[in-house]
């Protein structure tokens, strides 16, 4: 029983981190049809933001939950203004440009911080279930991911900003004709996606060592999740994370993490063959 609980927590944790790591990418892709290859670096910058804040004596919770989204959101705003806005509607160019950006950021981070591993102290201690040790922070990550998902849903569904954003993505020309400043909407949406990536980087900072190149270890999963999910950002990410998180974690338990990630890829490839437009391309149509 205790072991089953531990396994259960692990599986849910895998799903929750998938959601957290993919959400920013999914918002930017789902709302703006932009595939941001610098997503992993946005996460890493969130991690560095948290580390710097901790080094400057900021409370660890503020350092991982408040500082990273603000810092990376602002960087996202600059990136959108400086690069992405010139390429709207041209998906391939946007991908390549954001890849250039990704390399550029890795280079900058390496130049500034060197390539030694940084980290943030674990703010929560573990607890025991029966004979097993469980991580309290993992449970926090699960709860926080759900909270974030809910907050984004409320933001898109019930606020004026969300309405403007959804309207613009549906029909930019119409929105502009109705007096919406679409340029601003695009910029804010991109910044929101970036902030979510930064937040994910901050939240995961205590559990993952941070080096300039660690973006690569996140984006594989994030891409699979977003692609598998399809156009509806929130529903897509959630359903795909449920699927891939369980498959990956089951394979990890059965074998090891290496084959876990292989199983993840295989699941994604098969899913794409069956549902080329992702889960929400077929089911949950019209959902957010």
């Amino acid at each position: 029983m205790a072991y089953a609980t531990i396994v259960g927590i692990e599986v849910v944790y895998a799903i929750a981190t998938l959601i957290l790591v993919s959400l920013g990418l999914a918002i930017i892709f789902g709302m703006m049809r932009v595939i941001n290859l610098a997503h992993g670096e946005f996460l890493v910058m969130g991690g560095y933001a948290a580390t710097i804040a901790v080094h400057h004596g900021v409370n660890v919770w503020i350092a991982i939950l408040i500082v990273p989204p603000i810092a990376v959101g602002l960087i996202g705003l600059v990136v959108e203004r400086a690069v992405i806005r010139f390429l709207y509607g041209r998906m391939v160019e946007t991908m390549l440009a954001s890849w250039g950006l990704s390399l550029l950021i890795v280079g900058l981070l390496t130049t500034i911080f060197g390539s030694s591993t940084e980290g943030v102290p674990m703010p929560l201690s573990g607890f025991t279930i029966g004979a097993y040790q469980a991580s309290g922070y993992n449970v926090f990550v699960i709860a926080f991911s759900l909270l974030t998902l809910g907050a984004v849903y409320v933001l898109l569904r019930f606020t004026r900003l969300g309405l403007l954003a959804r309207g613009t993505m549906q029909n930019a020309a119409m929105a502009a004709a109705l007096g919406v400043d679409t340029t601003k909407v695009y910029a804010v949406t991109f910044a929101l996606g970036a902030a979510l990536a930064g937040l994910a980087g901050g939240v995961l900072a205590p559990v993952a060592g941070i080096v300039p190149t660690s973006g690569g270890s996140y984006i594989g999963q994030a891409f699979i999740t977003v692609l598998g999910g399809g156009a509806a950002a929130l529903t897509g990410v959630t359903s795909a994370a449920l699927l891939f998180g369980s498959v990956g974690q089951a394979a990890t338990f059965a074998t090891n993490p290496v084959f876990g990630s292989v199983a993840l890829l295989l699941a994604a490839v098969v899913l794409i063959r069956i549902l080329p437009n992702g889960i929400t391309g077929r089911y949950f149509k019209g959902w957010l």
Partner: peptide, 22 residues
């Protein structure tokens, strides 16, 4: 599966990423 150009890009990139990790 007739996935679009952009998805092909992401799929191949992911393939390389996962092979690298493995």
């Amino acid at each position: 599966g007739r996935i679009s150009d952009v998805y092909v890009g992401v799929m191949t990139l992911t393939l390389a990423l996962i092979l690298f990790n493995v």
